[in-house]
Every structure is written in structure tokens, then in C-alpha cells.
């Protein structure tokens, strides 16, 4: 089995969100970049499966300019065998999925995070599956490979399921796929420097959407405080003033 993990390079989740150019672009100054949290869990699970002997090779792929390479190196340090960077600014999910389709077709399992923590698109995994005409399963919270067969846990709206599906397949993963993201060890970081990071020229593709501008949520009014001793008053406020009880 060969696994490809899609790696999105996103701002650290504690980043203060600011915009530039009259609110038309995300301000990337002083931003720390990380592996998208769900992609990191997908990668961690892939490494566990490889250590268990169920997977031969793990590749990681990203669509981005050179600034994303430290993130790919980190993925190699966690345990991927090789990395592919498609050298283009990601325009939108359609554009990114079309780029990835060029490098993804020879893998048995493609893992994508359920969303990216920046633009919250939840789109690239599904689009890639469709472009490659692969099966796909979403909201995957568990993956095991038993005698070459995939056993998958997924969340449905209102419960969970255990299922099997044939490869090749795109699995769109969420929390639960691995317990904790794996932190690269010093040995992994040293080895990552020697692992291949292949830079690929982008394919011809258009975007179908454009981000016009950004707005921040309006500032909240001050929090109305109730004394600890009079906590019952809070119920009255929620009932009569906020009208939510």
C-alpha cells in the first residue's frame, strides 16, 4: 500500500487574524506556519500504519510557493518518505485539486484533512476524488488495514459507522484518526534533510472562485456580569432580556 497525505501549510491556530491592502489580503507578517492540524493527524496515523507493516510508502504533497518547504520538511521529519511540492500559489480548492490530481493517481490511499484551519473549505479531498474517479469517505475517525482490507470508522450526522471500501480511495479525516499528532524526534529531523523533496511545475488550471475582501466580526458589547450569590438572576436575564431560554 502506498499512501499520499495532502499537507496544507496554514497559520498557527493562535495567530491574530489581520488583513492588508484595504482588507483584500490576509496579513502574513510574523505568521508562524504549521501543518494543518487534521493533516498532521492523518500523517501520524500513516506513520503508525507503516510501523505496523501495513503500508510501504508515505508521500506528502502540497501546492504552494517555496515558503511552504519548512512545513513539508517537518512532515518528512514526522515520518513521510518523500515530499512533492507543486510550485504554485494556491488560488482556490478547484485549482489545488487539479494540481494534486497530476501527482496523486498512483497511490492506493489518499488522506486529506476534513478542512483547512485558514479558509475552512472542506473541498480539496472530495474534488480530488472526483477528478481521479476514486471512491471517497468523509469524516473518517479511524483507519485500520487488516490483511490488505481497509476498515474505516466514520462519523455520520447523529452517530458513527464501521465500513469497508476498496482502494484506490480518498479518505477525508477528522479528529480521532490518531490520538495525538506526532512530534518529530531529533533523529527524524536529521533524516528529513536527506529525504527527497521534489518540486513539480504546476499544470494548467483555472480558479472558479475569488476572495473579494475580508471582514472581522463586529466587536462584542461588554459582558454583563451577575454575582455568584445571585446566579439565579442569570436565568431571568436569559429568559426575559436575551430571550434564549
Amino acid at each position: 500500500m502506498k499512501i499520499l497525505v495532502l499537507i496544507n501549510n496554514v497559520p498557527d491556530t493562535t495567530t491574530k487574524i489581520r488583513f492588508t491592502g484595504d482588507n483584500t489580503a490576509f496579513d502574513t507578517t510574523r505568521v508562524q506556519w504549521i501543518i494543518n492540524p487534521w493533516d498532521e493527524l492523518a500523517l501520524t496515523r500513516s506513520v503508525e500504519l507503516k510501523e505496523a507493516g501495513a503500508v510501504e510508502q508515505i508521500s506528502v504533497a502540497n501546492v504552494g510557493a517555496q515558503i511552504t518547504e519548512p512545513t513539508l520538511r517537518k512532515a518528512l521529519a514526522v515520518g513521510a518518505d518523500d515530499a512533492i511540492r507543486i510550485d504554485a500559489e494556491p488560488k482556490d480548492a478547484f485549482f489545488v485539486a487539479n494540481q494534486l490530481a497530476e501527482v496523486a493517481k498512483d497511490y492506493d490511499i489518499i488522506l486529506a484533512g476534513i478542512e483547512a484551519s485558514d479558509y475552512n473549505g472542506s473541498a480539496v479531498g472530495g474534488m480530488l476524488a472526483e477528478l481521479l474517479d476514486f471512491n471517497s469517505v468523509s469524516a473518517v475517525s479511524g483507519l485500520n488495514i487488516e490483511n490488505g482490507e481497509l476498515v474505516i470508522n466514520r462519523e455520520i450526522d447523529g452517530g458513527s459507522q464501521v465500513l469497508s471500501i476498496s482502494t484506490p480511495v480518498v479518505l477525508i479525516v477528522q479528529k480521532g484518526i490518531a490520538k495525538e499528532p506526532r512530534i518529530p524526534a531529533m533523529r527524524g529531523i536529521m533524516m528529513a534533510r536527506k529525504k527527497p523533496l521534489n518540486v513539480v511545475a504546476p499544470a494548467d488550471a483555472d480558479a472558479k472562485t475569488t476572495l473579494v475582501d475580508f471582514t472581522l466580526p463586529p466587536p462584542k458589547a461588554a459582558c454583563k456580569m451577575v454575582d455568584e450569590e445571585n446566579a439565579k438572576d442569570l436565568v431571568a436575564l436569559l429568559h426575559e432580556e436575551a430571550k434564549v431560554l
Binding site: F94, G126, A139, D157, T209
Partner: peptide, 24 residues
């Protein structure tokens, strides 16, 4: 709907229809 199921199939449908997708 922006549910597990909606998020799973909307991107596939967008490709089939050559459509632009906006999620959430």
C-alpha cells in the same frame, strides 16, 4: 447543508457540474 454528508458530496458535485463551490 454544511454537515458531514454535505461536505462529503458537495465538492464531488461541483466537479461534475464544472461549478464554483463556496462552503460554509
Amino acid at each position: 447543508a454544511h454537515t458531514n454528508l454535505g461536505k462529503a458530496i458537495a465538492p464531488r458535485v461541483a466537479i461534475k457540474l464544472d461549478a464554483g463551490l463556496v462552503s460554509g
